Simulated assay, not measured.
Amino acid sequence: MIAAAALLMYAIVASTWGATMLSSWSWPVRSPAWGIWAWQALATSAAAALVLAGVVVTLPETPLGGLVASVLRSCSDALAQHYATPGGMPVAILVGLASAAVVARFGLLVGREARHSAGLRRTQRDTLALVGTDRPEGFTLVDHATPLVYCLPGRAGKVVVTSAACDLLTERQLDLVLAHERRHLLAHHHAALTLSGALSRTFGGFGVFGIAHQQISALAEMQADDAVRPAPDRIDLARALLSLVPTGLVSGSPSGRAAERVRRLTERADRPRRPVGLIASTAGLAVLAAPLALALVPAVEAAARDCCPTAYSHLPGTTDPSVGPLDTGGGLGEDVVQQRP
């Protein structure tokens, strides 16, 4: 029960204090790629803690307990004692079903979103084959009155530009916007957004899950903006963004978020310091490992025991638990107490 309580407390802290602290830091904006990693790690860790809390409650009441005991070469009775939960089997079944439902819902949402997105991309490719024109600059031109530039991810990813956007942007601005979209394709931002969106919907957008999806969406745009480094080019990209946002969208970014991007583009671009990546990667791995560590601590403690707390009432001819180990002349009682299945 202690392990389950610790996991629940960890999930609450990660969903509240952890999300607040990460939102207050400025380094994710300076290094968006590591910021995306940090938010993914934090949200995944909180979700894993909630699921594992259900797993450790059901552990003593299911064959999984024997499997864990066998892997750790520990005593199954000691393992059951460490993970004992008030309520017994009924509580274990309810909590186990809840954890299974969370995992199933997440998997269903990811699969549904993947199929839906694949269907939309397939439809768009078929449409572009009929109405689009492949340009030597590396994009597909579509005759449309709305100024729009977007990328179509997938194995054959491509960038789509409407004729209105070509008329609105200068040649240099168009090159910069194309670089932005190609960075989206190269970084596979659609996959990160699919996973964070499914995790957010799994938990109803509560706490860190909803915040992480919003932050990852914003940071993905900033990482794509960083495909442009020279200050004059970043100012040109900001102008292109301002030209496109009032009447259309750039990579699905609403105008409110575009204002933050424009401010970032027009400020001096600070290159992230090298330790940021090292610290972020190490901290992210630690955060991801924390729920599993909390879940396994009682099991490791049980494995470290030198003896197995076998109940004496299970011995033949013994009905009183207060009676000590039976002496049958062959040391049966001692053998049973020291036995480790």
Rank of each mutant, 00 (worst) to 15 (best):
R274T: 12
A259P: 04
R273Q: 04
S255C: 09
L265Q: 03
R257T: 10
R264A: 14
A212C: 04
S251Y: 01
G210E: 00
R271P: 00
E260N: 15
S243R: 15
V245D: 06
V245Y: 08
L219Y: 02
R268V: 11
L219C: 07
A258T: 08
I211R: 09
Q215M: 12
Q215I: 05
S217R: 15
E221H: 10
R229E: 15
R273F: 01
R274N: 00
A259N: 13
A218W: 05
R264E: 08
V262D: 06
M222H: 07
F209V: 02
L241S: 10
A218M: 03
S255I: 10
L244A: 06
S217A: 15
P272N: 06
L242C: 09
Q223I: 01
A212T: 07
A259W: 13
P232F: 06
S253M: 14
I235R: 14
V250K: 00
D226I: 03
S281F: 13
G256I: 09
V228W: 06
R229T: 15
I279T: 14
I279A: 15
S243N: 10
R268N: 07
Q214A: 11
I216W: 01
A258E: 01
A218T: 08
Q223D: 14
V250T: 14
A269E: 12
R271D: 10
R263E: 06
L278C: 08
R234L: 07
A218R: 08
I211V: 11
A280C: 14
I216L: 13
R263V: 08
P232E: 03
A240I: 04
I235H: 13
D225C: 06
R257W: 04
P272F: 06
V245C: 10
V276N: 02
A220Y: 04
M222E: 13
A231L: 10
D233R: 05
R271K: 10
T247D: 15
G256V: 13
A258C: 12
A280I: 13
L237W: 05
R229Q: 15
L241N: 02
A231S: 12
G252S: 09
V228L: 06
L265R: 01
A269F: 14
P232R: 06
L219H: 02
R229K: 14
A258M: 13
I216S: 05
G256H: 10
L265I: 05
V250C: 11
G252P: 02
R261T: 09
R274M: 10
D226Q: 13
A231N: 05
R239V: 12
V262M: 09
V245A: 15
D226C: 06
G210L: 00
A212S: 13
T247M: 12
R229G: 11
S243A: 15
V228A: 00
S243T: 13
A224H: 03
V228Y: 06
H213M: 01
L219G: 05
A231Y: 12
A240R: 10
A212L: 05
A269D: 14
R263C: 01
L219M: 08
L237K: 03
D233P: 01
R264V: 02
R261C: 01
S281L: 15
S281D: 11
D233C: 03
R229N: 09
P275R: 05
G248F: 08
L237C: 03
F209Q: 09
V262W: 03
S243V: 09
